[in-house]
Every structure is written in structure tokens, then in C-alpha cells.
Amino acid sequence: MNAPSPSHLLADARTPAAASLSIILLSRGGAYTAGMTELNELASRLQTAMDAAGKSVQLVTAAYVDRAQPTLMEALDLCANAQTILILPVMVPDEASLRRWLHKLIMRWRAGQQSAQQPMPHIVFGQPLLQLQGLTELLTRTVDDALRQPDVPEVLGDDPWEHDPKGWSQVPDHQHHVLWCVGPRCAAKGALQMWPALTRAIRETPALKNSVQPLQTGCQFPCNHGPLMIVYPDGVWYGPMNAESIAPVLTRHVQDREVDEALHVHGPRCLQPN
């Protein structure tokens, strides 16, 4: 007897009313706002199209697995009052390991709903984007339209396309890099919400302002210690971080050259003086 798929495990046997449907468009995050704007616009167009087709939807919202907000957990909270939550993955490619972890994340979210004595929504995943029926035919229909487009446009204005700005070749003066993990699991633990606290701590602390460069990263792998903060060139890993611990831990590390033992995960415990 075959075991049920994770998607089946997320859904109960009810057939909820269409009027109590919410949809989450789930994507991978990025460092630029243009992609987030496009996904929000797609969510708005989908809600309009569903309403025009007589398929009432409470909410259509974008959500991100990593690097951006709202996270999937935040989107689930927004949709918690719906009888059915449909998650439509719009990311390419679809990773089986990531999908399995997302199912576990949803199960944990539902467990939280149970402890709060909230009604249990019916949660289902749609097909991965590249597996959608009709996708090949849709791409085929776009070929003729694409071939009618003009050639790649020339650079507008006075920007010489042959050369990049000189500043792009200059290495900044920062002495330390702070790698802040915003991979899926750290994002689920609040890393994205804490990012402004990290940048604010650096901006508002004189000892950090001109010597520390914060960088977001993908998954660093020791996820149970997340949210993770890694300070280089010393190679010290800290976690689990919270918004209140960022400034004191980082200031102590950079200015006083001391490692916070309570949050130390990996790397040297003694630092060389500046």
C-alpha cells in the first residue's frame, strides 16, 4: 500500500465552500524589488480574474520561501480565516527537498493553529510551475509575438555601453563582513524581519558604521541554530539571533574583539586585537 503524498497529508476530507478560498502565490525571494512588485501585481490580476469568473476569493497574496517578505508563515496567518488555502508555487525550478520542508513548515503552522483553538483550514499545494498542463502550448503561442519585438535597444542617454563605472572595480574599505542567512529555514524563524535591526545597528553604531558590510546569504545549513549571523574574516558563527542581540553581539565582536559565548555556534572563541 502506497503512503499518501505530503500534499494529501496537508488536506482534510472536507469540501469547503468556494467563497472561503484564499490563494498564496509562493516564490523564491530576491534582492531587488522589481520582482516582488511583479508578483504582487500578478496576485492582484489573479484576484480580479477569479472575481470576474464568479469564483469568489477572500484573498490572493504573494509569499516568499526566502530573502523577502511576507514569508509563507506570514501569508498563512493572513489567510488563516479561510476554509481553504491554495498554495500555487510560481518558482523555477521546483526542488523536492524544499517542497518536503515546506510541508513540514505547514504542519508546524497548523499545530500552532490547533493550540490557539483556531478552525483548521484545508491546505493544498498546486502543481509546480514547470509541470503545469498547457505550459508548453502557452510558450509556443508566445514565440510569434516575441519574434516581432525589436532588437535589443541601445543604451539610452550618455552612458557608454563599452565601459562600466570605475567605482565598480573598487573594493570597499570595510574590515568585516556580516553574513546574515535568509535561507528558507532562517526566514521561517524571523531572519527577514530582523534584517532591518542589523542594518540599523551598523548604521547607528559609530564603531560599526564604516567597518562592517552586511550581506544576505542563502542557506548556511546548520538550520537548527538559526537565525544565523556569521562574522568574517574571523569566521565566527552566532545563533540563534534575535533583534535585541544583534547590536550588542556585533559591537562586542568588532569593537571589543570578544566572542559572545552564549550565542557562539562555530569558529574561534578568542579573537586577535584590532
Score class of each variant (00 low, 15 high):
residue 7 S to H: 07
residue 10 L to T: 09
residue 106 I to L: 14
residue 51 D to Y: 00
residue 1 M to G: 15
residue 182 V to Q: 13
residue 234 D to H: 11
residue 135 L to Y: 00
residue 254 V to L: 01
residue 141 R to V: 10
residue 166 K to S: 14
residue 189 K to M: 05
residue 140 T to I: 09
residue 144 D to R: 12
residue 107 M to S: 12
residue 5 S to D: 08
residue 220 Q to F: 13
residue 196 P to G: 05
residue 199 T to E: 08
residue 246 I to F: 14
residue 53 A to N: 15
residue 226 G to V: 04
residue 96 A to M: 02
residue 46 L to D: 00
residue 115 S to Y: 12
residue 176 H to M: 11
residue 182 V to M: 10
residue 131 Q to I: 01
residue 125 F to P: 08
residue 13 A to G: 14
residue 116 A to L: 10
residue 169 S to F: 12
residue 145 D to H: 09
residue 21 L to K: 05
residue 111 A to D: 14
residue 8 H to N: 13
residue 236 V to F: 03
residue 217 T to C: 03
residue 154 E to P: 11
residue 56 S to A: 06
residue 7 S to D: 13
residue 263 L to Q: 10
residue 135 L to V: 03
residue 203 R to D: 08
residue 10 L to V: 11
residue 156 L to A: 14
residue 6 P to Y: 02
residue 4 P to N: 06
residue 27 S to Q: 07
residue 188 A to K: 06
residue 54 G to K: 03
residue 239 G to H: 04
residue 196 P to A: 06
residue 168 W to T: 11
residue 254 V to I: 07
residue 4 P to Y: 10
residue 259 V to W: 07
residue 227 P to F: 02
residue 152 V to I: 11
residue 92 V to Q: 01
residue 80 A to M: 07
residue 205 T to I: 06
residue 265 V to F: 08
residue 44 S to T: 07
residue 270 C to W: 02
residue 232 Y to S: 11
residue 33 T to E: 05
residue 224 N to W: 08
residue 138 L to F: 12
residue 212 V to H: 04
residue 77 D to E: 09
residue 87 I to V: 12
residue 26 L to T: 04
residue 187 A to P: 00
residue 84 T to M: 09
residue 151 D to E: 14
residue 16 P to Y: 06
residue 131 Q to P: 04
residue 67 R to F: 11
residue 176 H to P: 05
residue 78 L to V: 05
residue 33 T to N: 06
residue 101 W to V: 01
residue 16 P to Q: 09
residue 137 E to T: 08
residue 242 N to V: 09
residue 263 L to V: 08
residue 242 N to G: 04
residue 226 G to A: 03
residue 249 V to F: 12
residue 99 R to N: 01
residue 72 L to S: 03
residue 71 T to I: 05
residue 156 L to F: 13
residue 210 N to C: 02
residue 231 V to E: 05
residue 77 D to A: 06
residue 123 I to F: 06
residue 160 P to H: 06
residue 94 D to N: 08
residue 259 V to N: 09
residue 240 P to G: 14
residue 98 L to Y: 13
residue 270 C to E: 08
residue 205 T to G: 06
residue 101 W to P: 00
residue 32 Y to P: 00
residue 166 K to C: 13
residue 43 A to K: 00
residue 151 D to C: 11
residue 194 M to D: 09
residue 219 C to A: 07
residue 187 A to Y: 04
residue 160 P to G: 08
residue 93 P to E: 01
residue 94 D to C: 05
residue 266 H to Y: 08
residue 19 A to S: 15
residue 266 H to P: 02
residue 108 R to E: 10
residue 81 N to A: 15
residue 211 S to G: 03
residue 239 G to T: 07
residue 161 W to R: 09
residue 50 M to D: 08
residue 211 S to P: 03
residue 183 G to D: 14
residue 46 L to K: 01
residue 14 R to F: 12
residue 151 D to V: 12
residue 120 M to S: 12
residue 138 L to C: 10
